[in-house]
Structure formats: C-alpha cells, structure tokens
C-alpha cells in the first residue's frame, strides 16, 4: 500500500431541502464513497445547508468541451420561436 495520499477527488452535491434539486457545492478528498459523505457532512453542512448529499467521483464526470460551446449552444440563440413572447396575442384575450 502506498503511503502517499491516494485519496480520490469527489464532487459534492447538496439538496438544501426536499422539493429542490441537488446542487454542486464543491469538492473534497476521500479514500472511498462512505468517507466522502462523512467529510461532506462536516465541510458543507455545518449550518443546516442540506438534507441530502451526493458524492460523485470527479473522474466519473464527462463534461462538454469549452471550445465546442459555440457549435453546441449558439444554434439555440436564433430560435426565438421557442419562446412565448414570439407570438402575438391581443390583450383582450387575457393572460395566456
């Protein structure tokens, strides 16, 4: 066994209360998932910030590449017809 700290990096997600999604809050080091949860509890929920914790190995996350963000995300910019304000409805019709 190596004496080096070979702890993996875990990304921590917290649900602040039921009804809301888990949200990324930061990361930490831990030798396994169980310890990751324990450490996350100590580090990220000292002031009742959460009711549920997810710990995900950083390495397990696949991210889109920043230099691909143009082909990935700009096509949506000119599709104004996907938004309600694109359509003209007379005021008399009322709220729709």
């Amino acid at each position: 066994m190596s004496t080096k700290d070979n702890w993996k990096i875990w990304e921590i997600f917290i649900r602040s209360r039921n009804g809301l999604s888990h949200k990324h809050v930061g990361s930490l080091h831990a030798p396994d998932a169980e310890m990751a949860i324990k450490n996350a509890r100590d580090v990220y929920t000292r002031r009742s910030e959460g009711v549920s914790i997810w710990a995900v190995e950083s390495e397990a996350i696949t991210a889109s590449a920043p230099d691909e963000s143009e082909p990935l995300f700009t096509p949506a910019d000119d599709k104004v017809y996907r938004h309600p304000t694109f359509y003209e409805i007379p005021d008399e019709v009322g709220h729709m």
């Binding site: 066994m1 190596s2 004496t3 700290d5 070979n6 702890w7 831990a30 030798p31 396994d32 169980e34 310890m35």
Partner: peptide, 13 residues
C-alpha cells in the same frame, strides 16, 4: 489516520 482510512477503503473495495 490517513493510512488507516486507506487500508479500510482498500479492504472494503
């Protein structure tokens, strides 16, 4: 403590 945590994690795995 770090060694013990490593050993435990390895054993569990």
């Amino acid at each position: 403590v770090r060694k013990a945590a490593n050993a435990y994690a390895e054993k569990q795995a």
